[in-house]
Nucleic acid binder design. Structure first.
Lengths: 150, 150
DNA sequence: TGACATCGGTTTCATATGAAACTAGTTTTG
DNA sequence: CAAAACTAGTTTCATATGAAACCGATGTCA
């Protein structure tokens, strides 16, 4: 009559956390070994590569990172001459960020690796299952959005 | 002719990380507010509640946490008299851990809350989708298992 | 036996994190 | 106009993390 035991291994938030942590570590290892980039740096490169030129605030919004993380990632990437910073003409608070030529070259190398890693992760799952996974992650993420970054 | 842009928002490892981080924060807030427990402490309570009595090493294995995290969580829980430690008769290295009466009472209160939180998270998803989500997370997690804890 | 590897668990130490304070510049509003 | 409120971004500080060193205790094997 008593309720079944609570089984941590079947608790979805736990499974989600374990899977995400393993993926993050694996990816950080790969990016780290190949390009010397941490995940915050990698995300910054990714959005700059796509959007071309963004203020730091936008990088934060588009990578789900807080502004402190972005600030540190950008400082580091500028130190490596992968990212350039230009002041805004009108608003002295704004700093436009963009990839340098070297940064763009690295970005071009990063993208195929990212796609390959994603592919590798999803082998064993059917296309329909991947679609459901995407939908589910979006649903879960959206439900808890709006509290803050990351 | 050129490849489509790399879109971070659609990159599965990114979506996974964002969803998992939001869930973790949300849950940590709730457990924290209701019971004053961090996630490592909560996980420890959960497996002790289920298995009754475990050495710290087993807690680590069953919660996907490293032994340092477990050691700290246990120290804290013992300080709050939620967990008791007993030496093993044969092996002086082993310490058996179990919930105290107060710990068991807290565990009994934690479980329904955990179920409710899981439920809340999954509203909007059909049962079949949840099943696929479970399968997908297991597949992804397993593929990257064996590297280390968490 | 007596080295030597191994184990359970704790401590140390260097790094990552993010909330809150801060700096500088801009907008609002009375 | 001059507070006051707000924005972009950086710095500070207290906490969380985990790799590696460590401590006893056991196990192994010559």
């Amino acid at each position: 009559m008593s309720k079944p035991d609570f089984v941590l291994e079947e608790f979805l938030p736990y499974r989600l956390s374990v899977a995400a942590n393993r993926v993050s570590r694996h990816f950080a290892d790969r990016y780290g070994a190949a390009f010397g980039l941490s995940i915050p740096e990698w995300r910054t490169m990714a959005v700059l590569g796509r959007f071309g030129r963004l203020p730091a605030r936008e990088i934060a919004a588009r990578t789900a990172m807080d502004k402190v993380k972005v600030s540190r990632a950008v400082t580091l990437l500028m130190g490596r001459r992968l990212v350039l910073r230009k002041a805004d003409r009108g608003d002295a608070r704004l700093q436009w960020l963009e990839l340098s030529a070297a940064g763009a070259r690295m970005h071009a190398a990063i993208v195929p690796m990212a796609r390959a890693l994603e592919e590798e992760l999803l082998t064993g799952l059917e296309a329909a299952e991947v679609a459901v996974l995407r939908r589910a992650l979006a649903s879960i993420g959206d439900r808890l959005a709006g509290q803050g970054p990351d």
